[in-house]
């Protein structure tokens, strides 16, 4: 059963016009950060959302929680339409849907103690207060691997990895069912990164959590996800079970993304594709298939027609005009 169902979700940002621009009839610039995204996350699974910077993956995560109001589309959480909730109902459901942020420095208020930061959800939702709240906070802090005697310290007295643990404790304290993990390990050193990943997986097992795990790191996503969704310029171009997508990527973008990751140890078995050029500006995205400007397989139709998402395997979908040809950049190269 899917816990979270996202249907045709879009989020666009409108640029502001100055008075002069308005008088001269300037048109508003519109950035479609997320366009027409549909996905689901099953109860108890990890959906890995992967993409490069600026592809809209963080915006999607925040739009699902309505931290950024979606422009169009629907988000259903456990049968409730989150997009239609009134402010009090939204506040109530936020107990059950949480987020862990990327930057362990910016995500903790420097003027609050750990007890205040982690205990905040308890106070906001009237779950507990006073000694009881402190006891719960201490317990959660212990669970994420911090010392109970550190509870009255300020964030600047902790290292990056410890701060990320505080952020995790804050997300856990209200007993949520679903957590958006927005690049939670990207800012950390390799050895600390492994500690946090291990902790997140343990917590998921223990508490039966469901994650939407956002990252640009294919190794991390490949290691901990059950299913993967690949995003490019605000759209999901490929989605499916992790083994299927990583071993048999069907979209040329996924293929080139996988081949760009430097590998350790065993010599690269497959060839290597080098994408030319940079990510196009989301202000002025390419027509047709958004990937056609960098795609080694692009044909004329790609410039005009938006490809439809098609099934390419069990639960494995991709959006590309040349899917049926069964091309694989990795085998063609070398």
């Amino acid at each position: 059963m899917s816990l979270l169902q996202v249907t045709n979700l879009s989020k666009q940002y409108e640029g502001r016009l100055s008075l002069a621009q308005r008088l001269t009839g300037g048109r508003k610039t519109v950035v479609r950060a997320v366009s027409d995204v549909s996905l689901h996350v099953n109860k108890g699974e990890v959906l890995g959302l992967i993409g490069e910077s600026g592809c809209g993956k963080s915006t999607l995560g925040r739009a699902i929680l309505r931290l950024h109001e979606p422009t169009e589309g629907k988000v259903e959480f456990d049968g409730t339409d989150v997009t239609a909730l009134s402010p009090p109902a939204l506040k109530a459901i936020r107990r059950r849907m949480q987020i862990i942020f990327q930057d362990p420095y910016a995500s903790l208020n420097p003027r609050r103690t750990v007890a205040e930061i982690v205990g905040l959800p308890l106070a906001l939702h009237g779950i507990a207060s006073g000694e009881e709240a402190r006891a719960i906070t201490t317990q959660v802090l212990k669970r994420v691997g911090l010392q109970p005697d550190q509870i009255d310290r300020y964030p600047h007295q902790f290292s990056g990895g410890q701060r990320q643990r505080i952020g995790i404790a804050r997300a856990l304290v209200s007993n949520p069912e679903f957590i958006v993990c927005d690049e939670p390990v990207s800012a950390l050193d390799v050895s600390i990164q492994a500690q946090i990943i291990a902790l997140l997986l343990e917590l998921k097992q223990e508490l039966g959590l469901t994650y939407l795990f956002i990252s640009h790191d294919i190794s991390v996503i490949g290691y901990l996800s059950d299913r993967v969704a690949v995003m490019y310029l605000g759209e999901i171009v490929e989605t499916g079970p992790v083994a299927s997508v990583l071993d048999n990527p069907r979209h040329p973008y996924t293929q080139s993304l996988l081949s760009a990751v430097p590998e350790i140890g065993a010599k690269r078995a497959k060839g290597r594709v080098r994408l030319q050029g940079d990510l196009p500006s989301p202000l002025n995205p390419p027509s047709g298939c958004k990937f056609h400007t960098r795609c080694p397989l692009a044909i004329p139709i790609c410039q005009t027609l938006v490809p439809l998402t098609q099934a390419v395997g069990a639960e494995h979908h991709a959006a590309c005009h040349r899917l049926h040809e069964g091309l694989n950049l990795l085998e063609g190269a070398q």
Binding site: R62, L65, L67, L90, K91, A92, R94, R95, Q98, I99, F101, S107, L108, N109, L120, P121, L124, H125, G167, R170, S174
Partner: peptide
């Protein structure tokens, strides 16, 4: 943003 996500 975290505070808002917590329902503040």
């Amino acid at each position: 943003e975290a505070a808002r996500a917590l329902g503040a």
